[in-house]
């Protein structure tokens, strides 16, 4: 009965809610509800990350997924319509096929994964041990993850930071979140999107 610990049952509950939210995101037509559901999705998955002992990942998920992406998605919604256009059925078979194949490949790969916390797995047996042992004498900080990210793989992290900065710059340019943003409205096809609702009401 090792599986029926309370934490396990709570995990199952969280994952069940993730499945419900994922299906709802696919099925719903209202873009606003979808943005809200994406925020809920990352809230739930961050709670699940905490139960998996990945507290740093949960921190990132909470900050990026629930906070910033909701704001960015709302900013993107200002530039588009408020409803998803339905996709005809004949164009849905190819994506379904790709998703099923990818899922089957992932299930196939599960067999090759090491057991959780296995001391003989590659990650725990070779380079990881070196990092853990050398961090205290070489970097002189207690956190191994920070040492790997900021020192051992410093150039890698620097490149990632540049990529993230460029991506953020592109998003800001696209969405117009700069100083003029309050006075600027999107006008696709010469039509003021932000005024459509007002015309309908009057």
């Amino acid at each position: 009965m090792n599986f029926l610990t309370p934490a396990f049952i709570l995990d199952v509950g969280l994952l069940a809610m993730l499945v419900v939210v994922a299906f709802a995101v696919v099925r719903l037509r209202s873009l606003f509800a979808i943005v809200m559901l994406q925020g809920v999705y990352s809230l739930i998955s961050a709670a699940w990350f905490v139960s998996l002992d990945a507290v740093d990942v949960a921190f990132t998920e909470a900050a990026v997924g629930a906070g910033i992406s909701t704001v960015l998605m709302l900013g993107a919604m200002l530039l588009t319509e408020r409803e998803v256009k339905p996709v005809p059925m004949r164009r849905q078979w190819a994506p379904l096929f790709i998703v099923v194949i990818t899922g089957m490949a992932m299930f196939y790969a599960i067999g090759d994964m090491p057991v959780f916390g296995d001391p003989n797995s590659i990650a725990n047996a070779t380079l990881g041990v070196e990092y853990v042992e050398a961090t205290k004498s070489q970097i002189i900080i207690p956190n191994v993850v920070s040492a790997v990210l900021a020192s051992y793989r410093g150039y890698d992290t620097f490149g990632e930071t540049v990529v993230v900065f460029v991506a953020g710059l592109g998003i800001v340019l696209l969405l117009g979140l700069n100083g003029n943003a309050g006075k600027w409205r999107a006008k696709p096809n010469g039509q003021d999107v932000s005024q459509i609702g007002a015309e309908d009401a009057s």
Binding site: M36, G39, A66, G67, T70, V71, L74, G75, M77, L78, L175, G176, L177, N178, G179, N180, A181, G182, W184, R185, S194
Partner: peptide
Amino acid sequence: IATIAVLKFFRYSALG
């Protein structure tokens, strides 16, 4: 933050 962004979205139709 998310709630403020949502409310601004509906009050002003702009986030900036």
